[in-house]
Write a protein that binds this DNA or RNA. Structure first.
Lengths: 313, 313
DNA sequence: AGCGCTGCTTTGAACGTTAAAACCAGGGTG
DNA sequence: CACCCTGGTTTTAACGTTCAAAGCAGCGCT
């Protein structure tokens, strides 16, 4: 009756609904879960908080919980240090709770987690493309290349003709993706790219050092597009140390629109995290209605980031 | 049998345990929850991510999930914009899931949440003291005053005689607490405090501006103790803008040991978040064994933060 | 009148666990 | 020898749902 209100008489339905409202009846989830083998719980793994990634993840987590509870789902947390630890966690979780789905973050090349879940028929989405993997599963990601392209084009529009790129080491899918955005925009405008790009780990110090190296080159760049806010802030530090004013003398842009970027006045690229969360849930619900996980839609969603213009560029 | 292994014969016990291992039996939590009215679920509210607080909260959340799952508990998330929204969320959650307990963060003066939970007999701990409230409930907090006192004493030991304090507006329990640490350390060493303290919102820009104001005073401070990393970074920016090198010319310290502080080389005060998480769970378990929540231990735990020395002071 | 519809409504079993109650040998006691 | 312990094992009911199956009108048909 409660789950098929159409095949009952109007009057009875109203009578029941009235009673429900009067005594404040709420179905006990545990009993529902026991009977239906569905828990309306979505599990999300917290990777060990490293560097600046925490901030993005934190607001993603917030948006995801908010959106889930609007749709009647809840987020259950677990921790996972490594891929293998996470796989062990899946096993434990699936045995004890009857989780409806998993949301994975931080996909990377050679990701063992997706294969495992696929093989065991567990519904899941990833926030992040299946980098260099043939595994077909639903995913949601933000178009980093497009964001960086937009930032670069903006700088070109502002008159810059030599634009440097401070990026991450080769092999990180996200980093390479963002880098191509810069390269494409420069190429499209007929601007040089050779010798203008450096690769480094994600730290303020390295950002600063590599920025210095490019500034010391013969025709030095008049703008720096950076793969992350931390590196951009490093470049920023180098500029101010040389008495250059970011934004007027030399432009800098970052990525992720972190609190630090906002505080410093750094132009950055914001990920639409609430939309990512929404898209993840859409994908999951599509998976769950075609239950037993058979047809596997397997397509991904690529969302556009937003360029946030500030004083620095 | 499973829950009272002592009143069964050795041989039978082994036989059962062997069978459990052989077929990989795992109790289904939903059924346990249904029968025992306990879910081994702890709910935690995610407040809307503001400013820099997100980082601390994120690693707290990580540590809490890790520690909980070691003890057989899981963390369930919900969002809450305001106190009242959160109270509404309690109601909804308690009706549907049989949550074992709540962990609250961000306690503040006039906190309506604790009263509600107390009144409804729901077990909970807060990360944060009951600021200016008579409500008696278990809490865990970090001794901000002590941390700032340590930082200040360290600066005094390094020879500083005029130490400024950049703090938050009056009325914020946390901010006032940290401020007293600075005042105590100065007083104890016979150093001046009047005219050396400023209050501001938690932003880089304001930190910078107020730092400038103190630097322009007649005998200007040779060190700045700051209530947060953001404000400290603001002060840092002002110093470098004036050609002063933080740490050698003028010292600066922050609070929270954020990624930004580490990157910049800013001396800061780290909260022992893993210990906080552990203490929260200790408090909860104590509450839960004395079930029906009767005796109410109601005492708090105050943990010592750790001074992280870096180049800036 | 008896039969089989149709359209609702009521009943009952099942989900996997726990906790209490019932059971059952064997041994000591009156 | 009937009795009651005692230490251990097996049965059973219950938790709150859902879903299928059974029940039961009332109606039209033969």
């Amino acid at each position: 009756m409660l789950n098929a209100p159409h095949l009952v008489r109007e009057e009875t339905r109203l009578r029941v609904e009235d009673a429900i409202a009067r005594i404040g009846y709420r179905p006990v989830k545990a009993a529902q879960a026991l009977r239906t083998r569905r828990s309306y719980l979505i599990a999300l793994g917290m990777q060990t908080p490293a560097e600046d990634r925490g901030e993005v993840l934190h607001v993603f987590l917030h948006d995801l919980t908010e959106r889930s509870q609007q749709r009647g789902y809840r987020i259950l947390l677990y921790t996972a240090g490594s891929d293998d630890a996470e796989i062990a966690a899946y096993d434990a979780l699936l045995g004890e709770y009857d989780l409806d789905a998993f949301v994975l973050t931080g996909t990377h090349t050679g990701d063992r987690r997706t294969d495992w879940l696929l093989r065991h028929g567990v519904p899941f989405v990833t926030f992040g493309r299946p980098w260099g993997s043939t595994a077909r599963h639903p995913w949601v990601d933000v178009d980093g290349a497009s964001g960086v392209r937009a930032a670069t084009s903006h700088l070109i529009g502002a008159g810059h003709r030599r634009i440097g790129f401070l990026g991450w080491p080769e092999g990180s899918g996200v980093g390479d993706d963002r880098r191509t955005g810069w390269e494409q925009a420069c190429r499209a405008a007929g601007l040089p790219v050779t010798g203008l790009s450096r690769r480094m780990r994600n730290s303020l110090a390295e950002g600063r050092a590599e920025c210095a190296r490019l500034l010391d080159a013969s025709p030095s760049p008049t703008a720096f597009v950076c793969v992350s806010d931390v590196i951009a802030l490093g470049a920023w530090a180098e500029l101010t140390a040389r008495g250059l004013v970011p934004g007027t003398d030399v432009a800098v842009t970052g990525f992720d629109d972190s609190a630090a970027a906002a505080a410093a006045g750094l132009t950055s690229i914001a990920q639409p995290l609430a939309d990512v969360a929404g898209a993840c849930l859409d994908a999951l619900q599509k998976l769950l209605v075609s239950s037993a996980g058979r047809p596997l839609p397997s397509d991904g969603v690529l969302l556009e980031p937003r360029l946030v213009l500030r004083a620095s560029g």
